[in-house]
Design a protein around this nucleic acid. Structure first.
Lengths: 102, 102
DNA sequence: ACCTCACATCAAAAACTTTTGATATGTTTC
DNA sequence: GAAACATATCAAAAGTTTTTGATGTGAGGT
């Protein structure tokens, strides 16, 4: 688990942009080449590249370069990690004393 | 499940800011009054109010007004919903054909 | 009724993210 | 090696979110 709130927040940045959710939906069907994502999203080439960078840096998506092309897919590990982190961040903990100031 | 990518993205906005993660951590220990959150976060009064609005609008946190005060807590329903949505957005689907253009 | 307190709202500024078009890098094909 | 292509990077502009301080609103106490 990352230690700082900034690091944890970064993981969820992957999911808070509609273009990235569209890309993830395309990738749910299996590995896709950037050219397919470009065709099937509303993004231009450099815009796609920008979003793919965010998705891969957060570990949700894996990029597999192969010659001229890059193939992208959802990382099962990254997925499991984000789900575990979300659970962790919202899981109730045993309160030692109910903090009722008011 | 919300229908548009914008609506889905909004849910994860709750988790992509360090101040909001700090607030969620405080709320994991149980319901807290805004005054406690104010004390234990780096926010000013209006900043806290801004973030609490985002957290309650996404359904992750519930605000319970009681006279002058508002008590906040993590919504077990909102939590379950966000987790389910994250799973859904990243779950592999049966690919009818592997889209291998390149 | 008036004062005080908790919280919400507002508007402007600051900070950050995304888009866009241009240019760079690296790979394949001739 | 030159051309053609895929992707990355860059810098500026556009858009969005967050912070800040001031003011509004509604509850409770006197």
């Amino acid at each position: 688990m990352p230690t700082s709130y900034e690091e944890k927040a970064r993981v969820f940045k992957a999911f808070c942009d509609p273009n990235r959710l569209r890309i993830l939906e395309l990738l749910r069907g299996g590995e896709k080449c950037a050219c397919v994502l470009l065709e099937q999203s509303d993004l231009g080439q450099s815009g796609l590249s920008y979003h793919m960078k965010i998705l891969t840096e957060t570990g949700i998506v894996i990029g597999r370069p192969e010659g001229k092309w890059t193939h992208y897919s959802i990382s099962e590990e990254g997925r499991a990690y984000a789900i575990a982190l979300l659970k962790e961040l919202t899981r109730p903990v045993e309160a030692r004393e109910e903090n009722s100031c008011c």
